[in-house]
Simulated assay, not measured.
Amino acid sequence: MDRQDLRLAVCVGLAAGFGSISTVPDGYYLPLTLAAVMVGSYGGSYALGLQRVICTLLGGLLLLIAQPAFTGLPFPIGLALMLGLIRFLGGCLGLEAGYKITGMVVVMGWLMQSTAVDGWLGLKLSWTALGVVLALLTLHLFWPSTAIREHQQAYVALLELQREALLEQQRLLLQSAGVRLSPARRKQRHRELMRALIQTRATRSAALLELGANPYAQPQSHLWTELERCCAAIAGCITALRALREPFVAVPALRELHQAEAHLLADAVALLGLWQDALNRNRAALLPDSRSDDLEASMERLRSVERDLLVQDELPEALDPFQQRQLARRLLLCYQIGAVVQRMQLRWQELMITNKDPWPAPP
């Protein structure tokens, strides 16, 4: 049993005890609402609880307004028409859950005496609303677990794996002997990276639900989309770098080039660390001084070293065609990593300008 199951069991038990000792009738609706609404995340529970209240209201309105029009019909026909009307109105209102609640309200109210329907509907709605409020308070106060925070932590874990992989490539560029991973270890690291990337995508829907009714109008959703693209591109570059042969550190003419590549990767790792710090905070925003100037300088230095290297006549003699392709491939991948990280950094800052405080504090 995890902590969410324990939280649900404790809260439902307390709600059942409170409902049983309460002098207000129909107290069993309170634990039933808690058990149905507490789905784990605050946003999911809020959406589900809101629809539960709406469906209860819808069932009560249909019972009070439409039932008198169907009383002259046979009971099976009238009830079937009422349930069809529930389905039609629920589709028009865009309800995704709670049709059973609306139907239950209608069926139970239909079978009750007309004099008792008004009081029962008020009690049902009151207990339902109280259960939703208690569920949200419980998720806020008792082992809070928000989908936005979980989504951000998934990105933090993914960025940590990518930082480790880039640091591994940096060490390989500086001293290749005994640094390159074995094929089995490379395959394991690749699987870990892919699982972390899949985990970020799996937690996206719940985080978007927690943003509210129109999540795509908020900068957070755009930032997550851009960050996912950036991490996917970096993951592809890391996989391609691991597939290359060891760098040619024994060739004196290439040492400066490899040092420039290592410096670029180190600056990219530094920016990934700043992103992790931003995502770990309640209000994830980059610090004002967290710019990509160092990364830009590293990319310019690498271009300068590359230009100097291309004019040397002895380079084609030191490397065969396969080694030259390997050298060009590694150089291109380093440029790609630098460009992807720099573009994401600029995009993040643009979103901060669009909304000074785009990240809501977790409930």
Rank of each mutant, 00 (worst) to 15 (best):
R7W: 03
V24P: 05
Y29I: 08
A35Q: 12
S41N: 04
G44T: 11
C55L: 14
G60S: 14
P76H: 00
L83V: 13
G84H: 02
I86Q: 02
L93A: 12
G94I: 05
G94D: 08
Y99V: 07
L111E: 02
S114C: 07
W120S: 06
A135L: 02
H140P: 02
L141R: 14
S145M: 10
Q152I: 08
A157E: 14
A157I: 12
Q169P: 01
G178L: 00
R189L: 10
E192F: 04
E192C: 07
L193N: 03
A202Q: 14
S205P: 06
A213F: 11
P215I: 03
L223R: 14
A233N: 08
I234W: 08
A243K: 10
F248P: 04
F248N: 09
A253K: 01
R255F: 12
E261C: 03
A266T: 14
A270L: 11
L272A: 09
G273A: 06
R281P: 04
L286V: 09
L287H: 09
S290D: 14
D293F: 09
S298H: 01
M299A: 14
R301D: 08
E314C: 07
L315H: 01
R325I: 06
R330W: 00
L333M: 08
A339R: 13
A339I: 14
R347G: 10
R347K: 15
L351F: 15
N355M: 11
W359H: 14
W359R: 15
